[in-house]
Design a protein around this nucleic acid. Structure first.
Lengths: 125, 125
DNA sequence: CAAGTATGATTACATCTGTAATAATTATTA
DNA sequence: TAATAATTATTACAGATGTAATCATACTTG
């Protein structure tokens, strides 16, 4: 898992489905799960799956005439990589200004704020 | 400023330069400023500028034979829009899990943590 | 066995992006 | 004024992306 492939917006939806399943799933499982999420034709989803295989974000094993797909990269890794590129693009790489911006500007419920406070307290040690 | 245009990675570098200047600047100003940032030929940067104009992210006025470029969208707006799309893609739209992930996983100095704590305390009101 | 069906493979095509080169135009200078 | 330099405009081109349609093949069913 040396290199995290660059996963496009549409491809992320596919990956999220696959990550959310504990076991490998068929193309149809993915298509079914995506019905609620996106308005894509099954062929579109197959294309996305194939591209993800080509990028080595997904692997598959043949189970009879079916393919069972499974992730080759973990969600945590991808989130990290994606975040890095996002923070670099938008904030020039500085994570903290981003957090400041979010904490100040975004809508958060009291509960959420409390949880964040809790996390920070723990980090302070 | 109804619609925030979608600004690509390379284009962001240009926008950041222009936002950082208080007054409109020429293409050459931008080229000069970007020398430290990216390894692009001047023509490449001109292309990016033109695309940003086409996207209505930049405006310009002719000053003699020069063009003076200025932003048509604010940095804050763009950050917000970009963040939204990022959070949607990666975290399914939930901002808070993202913050949790960052606060837990990323490297932050004690000072930074202290500042974040401070901000949260204030938000708690 | 033949025809329909399910599944994966191949092909399609417009737009966006990264990365420029070249052409056109205008201004400056010898 | 003619050549040169500066600046903007047009064109280029490959790879990524969104969004599929069509083709091929294997399986099921009448």
């Amino acid at each position: 898992m040396c290199e995290i492939p660059k996963i496009s917006e549409a491809e992320w939806e596919v990956m999220k489905i696959i990550w959310s399943k504990s076991s490998p799933c068929t193309a149809n499982d993915i298509v079914d799960a995506l019905i609620d999420v996106a308005d894509w034709k099954p062929n579109t989803i197959k294309t996305l799956i194939n591209r993800l295989v080509k990028k080595k974000a997904l692997g598959y094993k043949e189970e009879g005439r079916l393919y069972l797909y499974y992730p080759l990269v973990s969600q945590a890794e991808c989130i990290k990589s994606e975040t890095k590129s996002f923070v670099k693009r938008v904030f020039g790489g500085a994570l903290q200004p981003m957090l400041v911006s979010f904490l100040q500007e975004e809508t958060l419920s009291p509960d959420e704020i409390e949880e964040l406070r809790h996390i920070i307290e723990e980090r302070k040690g």
